[in-house]
Amino acid sequence: MNSLLTPAVAGLSAGGAYAILGVCAIFTYRLVAVVNFTGAAIGAAGTFVMVALTEHGMPLFPAVIIGILAGALVGVMIGGVMTKWFSGASATTKAAVTAALLVGIIALGLRLTGGQRPHLFPDLVSGSAFRFAGVEVTWGSLLTVTLAVGLTIASDLFLARTRTGLQMRALSERPMAAELIGIRVRVLALAVWGIMGAVTAFAMMIIAPLRSPDFMSLSLLVVPALAAALIGAFRSFRAALLGGVLIGIVEGMVSALEFGARFRGVVPFLVILIVLLWSQRGARWDAAR
């Protein structure tokens, strides 16, 4: 049993990372109705700005702040594109736009950060908190998981309890109608993009030291993140939190499997599929039209 527990605990920090990004993906989807393939890339951009500044000798704290702002800025820029030209487009078109943007951003990011040249990623929090099941649980991974939980609760409360949250839900469901009752749609949408950029940038800064620190790898974290969001059916923050953690743990656990090593990469996919088919078993028909 312990032979599975150890890798499961080891996967916890990755799981927290997926959960944060997954919650952000749902937030974006629910509020501006975009499945955002560039989510992780936006965060990666902010993180690399921070790294560039610390590499040039700037103290950590202001560099982090500027990095977060840079993430927000990139988010707002992509949000600007989406709201200017695609506010009325279909979900497929919007997905295609962010997919295309991802290809471009990765190319730009690789060029600007020097391909696979590693950078010195400062640990925002260092050291290990405690040891459990033979695994050093670092403050970094604890913070990741805490942040994921906090973000989930905050998102839930924000959407359900605050006036702005209600306005934003109105905005995503009926942009035209929202405009008519006097909500400044574009400003709110850009605010969502900015906040998501800032949050993912900060999350990425915590995650990055324990991931492959190149632009492409960090940008492609969007795949497990979207998988986590999918477990939440792009609606439930809590389910996405659990989904993200689950994917991380499963990834950790399969690394301990000895059989079928070649097919390990498929296991997380199968887990997602099973969870989904079970949770969507009642969805016999498409939305009435």
């Binding site: 150890t6 890798p7 080891a10 996967g11 920090s13 990755a14 033979g134 695994v135 324990l210 991931r211 492959s212 790898s217 492609l220 974290l221 991380g248 990834e251 950790g252 656990m253 690394s255 301990a256 090593a261 070649r262 390990r264 990469g265």
Partner: peptide, 20 residues
């Protein structure tokens, strides 16, 4: 001999495997 190191992904489990 482990031929399944991921390109992207968490390496903690692999490091622990080496230790154990």
């Amino acid at each position: 001999l482990d031929l399944t190191l991921p390109v992207q992904g968490d390496l903690t489990a692999y490091a622990l495997k080496a230790r154990d």
